[in-house]
Design a protein around this nucleic acid. Structure first.
Length: 224
DNA sequence: ACCCAGGGTCATA
DNA sequence: TATGACCATGGG
């Protein structure tokens, strides 16, 4: 018996089917609310393993301090930055991670320069920053740089494994690649798909799933 | 009073 | 490669 999870072949029909059900139920979501692309990236870091309501408090702190720009963040010392980030949890480590990212981002000439980079090298650069892993990098690539990547977060794993479409323990790159290959599309499609997954997860698929009213209906094979 | 949230790193074996 | 400890606040 092989113990390592194999990447099951995902077929386009299933992926499209789920998308259409969610899309029909939630409508157009236009996700990742933020006033700027930079705010998206900051939110991606602050959102690591953290409830979004707490991230918003930290973002509001930054906004109130006029610190939602690269130079403003670089001008803050560690203690001041960490204090603003406090509500988002892990504030000391996130202050470091945010600074690591902003130093790179500012040094690279911000979005204006980075927009001309190809997705793969951009991704490698992001992953080389201490504090940015697969999901955070893809959050930024998709929602700030509009690159067509399929984000794999806890919600995504939970949904597709409950649907029996994946094992759930696959490695990030394998899963993201398999999903992206099965569902060819542009950034707008991946944007909307991930947004719908998050909407579904927040409303229906938390620890106690409300399967009776879940928009996936009997399409979902998860038994609570 | 628990449990967990839109992860990632580092040490260890 | 693969586990486990660690980071920390706030809402249910």
């Amino acid at each position: 018996m092989s113990k390592k999870p194999k990447v099951k072949a995902l077929n386009q029909r299933d992926l499209v089917g789920v998308f259409e059900r969610l899309s029909k139920h939630f409508g157009k979501t236009r996700w990742w609310p933020a006033d700027s692309r930079f705010e998206v990236m900051v939110g991606a870091i602050l959102g690591q393993n953290t409830a979004w309501t707490n991230v918003e408090k930290a973002l509001n702190n930054l906004r109130s301090a006029d610190a939602l720009t690269p130079t403003a963040i670089l001008d803050l010392n560690h203690e001041s930055l960490a204090e603003l980030l406090r509500p988002s949890g892990y504030y000391n480590i996130k202050a470091k991670r945010l600074r690591n990212f902003v130093e790179w981002f500012y040094g690279q000439g911000e979005c204006k320069q980075l927009d001309s980079r190809d997705t793969e090298s951009l991704r490698l650069d992001l992953l080389a920053i201490n504090g940015i892993g697969n999901e955070t990098a893809d959050d930024m690539l998709l929602y700030a740089f509009e690159r067509p990547v399929f984000i794999v977060d806890a919600y995504t794993r939970r949904l597709f494994s409950r649907l029996g479409m994946i094992d759930g323990e696959e490695k990030y790159d394998e899963l993201s690649g398999a999903l992206g290959q099965a569902l060819t599309g542009d950034a707008a499609l991946y944007n909307e798909y991930h947004a719908l997954i998050v909407n579904l997860a927040k409303d229906y698929c938390r620890v106690k799933p409300l399967c009776m009213s879940c928009p996936l209906g009997k399409h979902c094979q998860f038994e609570p």
